[in-house]
Structure formats: structure tokens, C-alpha cells
Design a protein around this nucleic acid. Structure first.
Lengths: 200, 200, 200, 200
DNA sequence: AATGAATGAGTCTTCATTCAT
DNA sequence: AATGAATGAAGACTCATTCAT
């Protein structure tokens, strides 16, 4: 009854917009930025080329929007875990595994990120804005250090190290490696061991 | 920088070949694969377009050769460390820091890798052949586990986790973050803590 | 000249398509396949290069389409003659002269065929499909043999011999030789004499 | 002992020249003028590119020389037949079959001619000079007419009609058609019937 | 909003020929 | 005579974007 369609857009129009975003994500994940001409995007989206340019300013704009959306989904993973108010270590593990499983369940999102991250296509602004979604990760480490649970290390560094460790595991999994529960636990242990305060 | 002396070539000709490789590496690092047309490569190399194709079959061949060369340099780092026959932990630290400093000293090589790795440009064969250069890393972990120094975890997983951790630090450094010796040591500790066997 | 009305295209768009086909035919006839770069085709057609590739997949596709069209026109000549239901010999003469005059009236079509026939550009499929247009020629000879009017010879061989004889005359004419009605009649007689059954 | 090596050229040098000519003929026959870059010619000839340009002014010059050589070989066929001083009809048949068998025995020569004939590559001068080799054909018809054996038709027209008829048969043969002796005789009969004076 | 024809600068690559050795 | 590295203009084709409808 009450839809939240953007501005004056009707549902059908919204559908096209979404279809385009979805198609661009899939195509770029599979074919790379270059292997995904707008003409092909149009065809697979079932719209005309011109229609794409009614909804978006440029190819880059679409890519940036998708990039943000994917990062936002990670924020969703964090929120879901935090809602259960788990203990510190459990929160770490659940977020870690949540990120991992999100990308394994949505491999095209991972591959999309791989294709466009660290590329001039993603603007500084997009990095800054979407970076907000990952702030809770750094805050989590900050809290852990303050509470004496974690070694006192730079939270930015810790944040990136652990995040990239998860991505490493996703990548190995998508490369075809058989990432068993045991292997996954080993990777998780590696990270946790790297974080926690050593008993003295 | 990239040295591949081929028999019958004279020095002048060799110079051109080297100049092309160097230019492609620099350009792709800075502008991306797409932002580096062959015409520009030619101009910056000081040769004609045709000359490039006299020495290489295609743009992709050049990129693959550079990729291999860079990985080979990491093998060089390993060899240099091993030559000093350091203790186990020292070997780990010296290789870790060696990789880090190599890329910090040669940021374009790092950026080049970032641009082309996980891209269809790099062939399976290149991955296989150049992968040999990194075998010592996995063997090192294997030995550590066998000697009871490291936790018994999958060496492939450990290899990629630690390698990517180094790359994370290089990336932060090149992003402009002030990676002090303290921060670097923290990252190194993170990795080492994730590896070593916990006292029981 | 080359009419291939496609459904959804509007007239203006159709015009461009036709203009391109016409231009390619003329240019290749006069300059050869190699002497006719797409850039020149575009310029002479009054369209952008990209427009050509909007209508056709490749240069080869255009050439194949023209090849088929020209053969189809010969079928038109045959149909026109047959519609008049002439006697056997008259049918032969009218088709023979019809082919001859068609190419003399459209010398560029002849030269185009000369440039591309027996070339790997023309696909097997094009030969097969457009070959259908010339089937009536072989059927005509078959009928003549069955009715005892022509010597009993292989119709395929006869078909090619007579067809090439016409082409020979067109070629001489276009080379600048003054092919008078007398000379033309001599060539026609040569063919007919080679076909008809000798009195015994 | 007494070789007829051109000018100051020694035998080895002559060999290279011949090898280049042979290679160009074969390559163009099989790959077309465009599919035969000079670099490939050089490689297959076992010489350097530069060497080709020591012996010939340009690619076109080579092609023209080959064109003339092949026509000269047809003159050889004629001479061989004439040396046997056969009767009129026998001379016709033997030359006809001689041409046919020459090209069937040397299919690359035929395909070479097919690739370059009626092409701007062959100069007017080449056509004129090599045309001399085929003069005996026209003279033969002239004599036949004067002696009342053949219908009084333009000898130029007759010459081209019959020559092209032979080429037609060679082409069919090389296309893979099974040209049996019977079929060949039928084609020969077709030509002869088109030439001889009808009894009145 | 939607269409899809049209644009043309830009891409990689080829190749006949030249030239220093 | 011979080499083969070097040249660079030219070729077929691509593709993000625009625009008339």
C-alpha cells in the first residue's frame, strides 16, 4: 500500500533502475569493467541504452552506487549480529563469519568489489561515505583494547588486517579451494590470536 | 630493472625491450590497464608502436611478463634472507619486512600488481609458473608446523593470510597512512601471534 | 538499389543502411576490398564509422550481403524472361543476353563480384544460399537434355561453362573492347553451338 | 659447368631469389595477397626481410614477375604441342588439355592467378608483355578460320571464351568436383562445337 | 519516461618498407 | 649480399554517450 518509491518514480520505473544496477553488478563481476559495454548492459537489463542514462549520469555513477550498496550490506550484517548482543568474542566471530558467508553467498558482489576496488572509478567521496558503514568494526576493536581484551594496536591497522583476512578466505573459496569448516576455523583462530592480549 | 637478456639481441635492442617493459609497468600502475594505450606506451618508451610488437606478441604478453618478473623479485628477497641462515622467527620477520619494504620501495610494482592481479589478463600459466617463486613461503610454514613452532594449520591458508596482510600494510602506506615502525611492528606481531603455537 | 526492408527500422535509418551497402559495393568494385577502408566507406556514405557497425556486424557481413543481392538480381532476370514463356532457344538467348546486359548496365556489380568471388570473404553459407538463385539455369539445361534438344552433358559443367562465357564477354566489354551486336551474337552462337545436339 | 646465373649473382644468391618467388606464389595462392605479409614470406623463404628487398623492389614487383612466369609456362605448353606438329583438331585438343593439366598439376599457380588477376596489382605493362605468350592461341584460331575449319568469328573473343572455359574446368576440379575423363571430354566437345564450322 | 539510431574519438594491432650494421 | 630491428601510417572495430522521436 505505501511504497517508498523514490520521488516521482513509479514501481515499473523503479524496477528498471534496480534491474540495471543488478545487471551491471553481475556483468562487471563476470566480465570486468571493460568487458561490460553499456549496450550489453542495456540488452541484459531489457531496456534501451538511452533509458540507462535517464536513471544514471554515467557508467561510473552506477558502479559507485553499487560499491556503496555492497558496503552497506556489510553494515547490515554487523547490525544483525549486534542486535543479538553477543559476548565480545562471539561478536567478533559472528561478524567475521557473517562477512565471509555474505560474500560466499553472493560471489558476484565479491568479484564486483575485486574488479572495481582500488580503481580510479571509485571516487574519493564514495570511499569516504561508504567507509562509514564499516566504522563499527574499528569501534569494536577500540572497545576491546580499552577493556583490556585485545593487544593495544592501531585500530585502523587491525581493522584492515582482519577485513582483508576475511576477503582472502572468500577469494580462496571462490577460487575453488575446498574451505572446510576446519579451515575456516583455522583462519578465524589466526585472526583472533593476532588480536587478543597475551596472558602475562 | 626487468632483465631478460636474450641471446642474439644487441644491447641497443635490449635497451628498447627493457624500456618498454619498464614503461608499461609504470603506466599501468599509474593509469590502469585501460588508461595505458599502446600509443602512449610507445611515446613514453621513445619507440614506434611497431617496435613494441617486434618485441612482444601483444599487450597481454607484456603484462604477463612483468607480473612474473615482480613475483620473481620476491623470490629474490626470500633468497637473500635465507642466505643469512637466520633463526626461524628471524627468518619470518625478515621475509615479512623484506616483502613490505620491497613494495614500499617500488610502489609502482605494487600498484601494477593491484591493477592486474585477479584479472583475466594474467593467464593460468603465468599464475602457475610464477607461483613457483612463492613456494618457499609455504615450505617455511610447513617446516614450522613440523617442528612444533607453529599451530598446525593449513599452510596454503596461512600463506595467503600472511601474504595478504603484508599487502594490506603496503596498501595503507601507499594510501598515505603514516606507517611508523611501531605500526609496522604491530602488524608483524599480529601475523606472528596468529601463527605460533600457544603455550599449553 | 539493395533493398532489405527490416521491420522496425524507420525510413531514415533504412536509407543509411542502403547507402552503406551501395557505397561498399561501389568502392570495392573500384578500389578493391583492401582499397576500401571502413573510414572511407563511412565518409562516402555520409555516416559515422560507428553507424556502419550499428547496422552490420562486420565488413565481411556487408560484402556477403551484397554478393547475395547481386546473385538475387540474376534470378530476377531469369524470372522476367520465364514470365514471357518463350520457346527453348529464345529463353536461352534472352537469359544469356539478360545476364550480359545486366552487368554491362551495372558494371560496378560485375567488378564487385570479380573482386570478392573465390575469396575467403564469401562464406560457404553465402555460396550455398545465393546459389539457389541460379538453380533455374541448371534445371533449364536438364530439361533441354531430357527433351533431346541439347547434347547429354553434365548440367553442372554446362552451367558453369556458359555462365563464365557470359562473364568473359562482360569483362571484355568493360575492358574497353567494342563489343558490337555482331560480336555478342558470335559469343552467343559459340555457346549455343556448344550446347545443342548435333544432327545425326 | 656453365650456369646462366643472372649478372653478378652467384648460385646461392640465385637460390634465394628463386626461393622467395616460389614462397610468394605458394603463400598468396593459399592465403591471398593480404594473408601473406612480407615477414611471413621471409620466414618461410629462410631469408631476412631485408634480403627480399635486395632482390626485388617491392611486393608488387614480385607478384608481377610470378604472373608473367606462369603465363610463360603456358607458352611452354603450346610450344611442346606445336613441336609435334599435330593436325589442327589434335593441336586444339592437346593445347586445351595441356593448359588444363598444367593447372591441375600446379594448383597453386592457378590459385595464385585467381588471387591476383583483375587486380590493380598487375600492371598494364605486365598484361601487355605476358600477353605475348598467349598470342599463338589467337593465331591458331585465325588460321582455322582462314582455312575454313572454324566459324568466322572474332579471334579475340574466341580466344578468351575458350581460355576461360578451360579455367572454369580447372576451378571446378580444384573446388573438389570429380572431373572424370568423360566430363573433361564433354567440356572439350563443348568448346570444339562452339568453334567449328557447321556443315551446310 | 523510454527508445535505439547515431556519433566519432580512441583501441589494439598489422605490415610494407627502410636502414644501420 | 644479408640481416633483422625499427618505423609509423593505416586498418577494423568498440563503446560511452547523445539526441531526435
Amino acid at each position: 500500500m505505501f511504497t517508498f518509491a523514490k520521488n516521482r518514480m513509479n514501481i515499473q520505473s523503479m524496477d528498471k533502475r534496480e534491474k540495471i544496477l543488478q545487471t551491471v553488478m553481475e556483468e562487471i563481476a563476470q566480465e570486468g569493467v571493460n568487458g561490460s559495454p553499456m549496450s550489453q548492459i542495456a540488452k541484459k537489463s531489457g531496456v534501451a541504452t538511452g533509458t540507462i542514462y535517464h536513471h544514471f549520469k554515467s557508467k561510473e555513477e552506477i558502479i559507485n552506487e553499487i560499491f556503496s550498496t555492497i558496503r552497506k550490506k556489510l553494515k547490515g550484517v554487523i547490525d544483525t549480529v549486534k542486535a543479538k548482543k553477543p559476548a565480545f568474542k562471539e561478536e567478533f566471530e559472528q561478524v567475521w563469519l557473517g562477512f565471509y558467508h555474505h560474500f560466499v553467498a553472493h560471489p558476484l558482489e565479491f568479484k564486483f568489489m575485486q574488479q572495481v576496488d582500488n580503481t580510479p572509478i571509485i571516487t574519493e567521496q564514495t570511499y569516504l561515505e561508504s567507509g562509514q558503514y564499516l566504522l563499527p568494526v574499528f569501534e569494536f576493536y577500540q572497545k576491546g583494547i580499552e577493556e583490556g581484551l585485545l593487544e593495544d594496536r592501531d585500530v585502523t591497522v587491525l581493522g584492515y588486517l582482519t577485513y582483508d583476512n576475511i576477503m582472502t578466505m572468500v577469494n580462496l573459496k571462490l577460487q575453488g579451494l575446498d574451505i572446510t569448516d576446519t579451515l575456516l576455523q583455522q583462519a578465524l583462530d589466526y585472526c583472533w590470536s593476532g588480536l587478543i592480549k597475551k596472558q602475562t
